[in-house]
């Protein structure tokens, strides 16, 4: 699968951009948090696309954001 670049993303209609990023993020998140993957992916998609692209290329940033999202989610559900 080709990397998702900013230019490839910009070529897509706005309503498809988040979807394209989500399709990349979901499997990575599913590896870490199987049960919560759908919710975590939805939360992270609210972040700016430019930052999401950086996260896709940086496992450390992605995992930090995932843990942040889980903490927020747990606080929200409490």
């Amino acid at each position: 699968q080709e990397p998702l670049t900013a230019s490839r993303l910009a070529a897509a209609p706005l309503h498809e951009q988040k979807q394209m990023i989500g399709e990349r993020l979901y499997p990575l998140i599913h590896d870490v948090h199987t049960q919560l993957a759908g919710k975590i992916t939805g939360m992270l998609l609210e972040i700016d696309n430019s930052e999401l692209l950086l996260m896709l290329e940086s496992p450390e940033s992605l995992h930090a954001k995932i843990e942040e999202a889980v903490a927020v989610l747990q606080a929200h559900q409490a």
Partner: peptide
């Protein structure tokens, strides 16, 4: 309130509903 439905879940192959709020 609407916060009950937050976050909008993403599932592969399914149009993400969070797009309505962007």
């Amino acid at each position: 309130g609407s916060s009950i439905n937050w976050p909008p879940e993403f599932h592969p192959g399914v149009p993400w509903k969070g797009l309505q709020n962007i």
